[in-house]
Every structure is written in C-alpha cells, then in structure tokens.
Amino acid sequence: MKAFFEWIEDLFVDGLFAPFDFFREMQNWWTANTINWLFVVIGSAAMVYWLIQLRLFDQRGEEDTSITAHSYL
C-alpha cells in the first residue's frame, strides 16, 4: 500500500504539477500568476453569464415561486 501512495505522490509532484515549477521560478509576480489570472477571468465570465441567464429566466416568469415548488419545503 505504501508503494501505491508513493506512486500517487510521484505522479502529481513529478508529473502533473511539473509545469508549475516553471512559474514558481519566475521573478515577476504578474507573470508567475498567469494561470491564476486565467482562472479568475474564466470564473468571472462564467459567473456573469450565469447571472444573465438567471435574470432572463426570471423575467420570462418560468420559475415556480410557490411555497410547494419543492417537496422539502
């Protein structure tokens, strides 16, 4: 079992997270965090899209807002 968990460690440390070592060694903070900024931009765009869709759904009146809309209520 120990060998299995060591294999998982090697997979992630030496394999999957190896590209992040390149960013860790950079001197410029902005460049080193490009992956983080990319995730922030994608997450923000997804949230804006989701909120726009919720607003459109609410404006069409398709939502059941009665107190018995869900069985657990």
Rank of each mutant, 00 (worst) to 15 (best):
F39G: 11
L54K: 13
Y72F: 14
E62D: 12
M26A: 03
A18L: 08
Y72N: 11
Y72A: 09
I52G: 01
N33R: 03
E6S: 09
F22D: 09
S66A: 03
V13H: 01
V41E: 04
G15P: 01
F12T: 03
L54E: 11
K2W: 12
D10E: 13
E9W: 03
F22A: 03
D21V: 05
S66I: 00
F4T: 13
F39M: 13
T65F: 15
P19Y: 02
R55D: 14
E62H: 11
E62A: 09
G43N: 00
S66W: 04
F57W: 15
M1C: 13
E6Q: 09
G43H: 06
D21G: 08
Q27I: 11
K2E: 14
W37L: 10
S71G: 08
A46P: 03
L16E: 05
W7F: 10
M47V: 03
Q59D: 09
E6A: 07
Q53P: 04
E62R: 14
A3M: 05
A3L: 06
F39E: 15
W7M: 00
L38P: 05
Q59L: 09
Y72M: 09
Y72S: 08
M1S: 15
F20H: 07
F39T: 04
N28V: 13
D21L: 06
G61R: 02
F22G: 06
W7H: 07
L54W: 07
V13A: 01
I35D: 15
V13W: 01
K2D: 15
Q27M: 13
